[in-house]
């Protein structure tokens, strides 16, 4: 049986079930903690650090930290929001993000976070790395230019017998996420669509689809990411 415990986010009394991660517990209490690599229902990885909060004064990733009774969490403070913004800006310059020509624009979580934090220009110099687009799979296109290596696809897209369809290739700055050529052949339409959906950016695209939703009606055209949680 799970029990309810009390803790605080930015001084606000919150309740959550023991064992819940801070990010989820915040959602239950109508508080948005920005995330990027996290996906509901999949074991958290804590790789992007966008959800960094201060737990009793120490920086922790909110997606991997379970709540504890009496915990004091700091979330929406200038110091943290600037660190989060810096992470977003770093992701923009280390890849090739040409939003005006991107199929994911308007529905992209990286871009939406940049909007939420009002990024006008990244503080870091642009890297313009030379990267490929892999269009060998019959159902999807993998654009390495936009991949932020969040590993959502690896963690969430599995075959019926539990094998990951996506996997790492190469190391260090050359690191890429690739589709397993054999497993990728077996992609059903549903699994391919799920992969494109699970990718927070435009790094996994469905073939022969794109720009389907008119500007103005896309996910983040009218309201900042997280507003749905804050409205609860």
């Amino acid at each position: 049986m799970s029990t309810l415990i009390k803790f605080k986010i930015d001084g606000v009394e919150c309740m959550a079930e023991t064992g819940a991660y801070v990010v989820e517990a915040a959602v239950e209490n109508g508080i948005f903690i920005p995330t990027l690599c996290n996906i509901k229902g999949v074991k958290p990885r804590g790789s992007c650090r966008v959800c960094t909060v201060l737990v009793n004064g120490r920086p922790m990733s909110a997606c991997t930290t379970p709540v504890a009774s009496g915990m004091e969490v700091e979330n929406n403070i200038a110091e943290l929001n600037d660190i989060r913004k810096a992470i977003i800006e770093a992701l923009f310059v280390e890849g090739n993000h040409f939003c005006p020509s991107c199929e994911k624009s308007g529905n992209c979580e990286l871009q939406a976070l940049a909007y939420r934090f009002q990024m006008m220009v990244p503080r870091f110099p642009f890297d313009f790395p030379v990267r490929d687009i892999d269009a060998s799979n019959p159902k999807i296109i993998k654009d390495h230019n936009r991949c932020i290596l969040c590993k959502r696809c690896i963690r969430a897209i599995k075959t019926e017998d539990g094998k990951s369809v996506f996997a790492f290739k190469k190391r260090g700055r050359q690191l890429e996420i690739n589709v397993d050529p054999d497993l990728g052949e077996l992609f059903t339409d549903e699994l391919a669509a799920k992969a494109a959906e699970i990718c927070p950016v435009g790094a996994i695209l469905l073939r022969e689809k794109g720009y389907e939703i008119p500007i103005g009606q896309r996910k983040f055209d009218k309201e900042p990411i997280g507003s749905d949680i804050e409205k609860k």
């Binding site: 939003c99 624009s105 940049a114 909007y115 500007i215």
Partner: peptide, 9 residues
């Protein structure tokens, strides 16, 4: 700077 006016596309 209302939300709808700052967009990258």
């Amino acid at each position: 700077l209302p939300y709808e006016v700052v967009k990258f596309d």
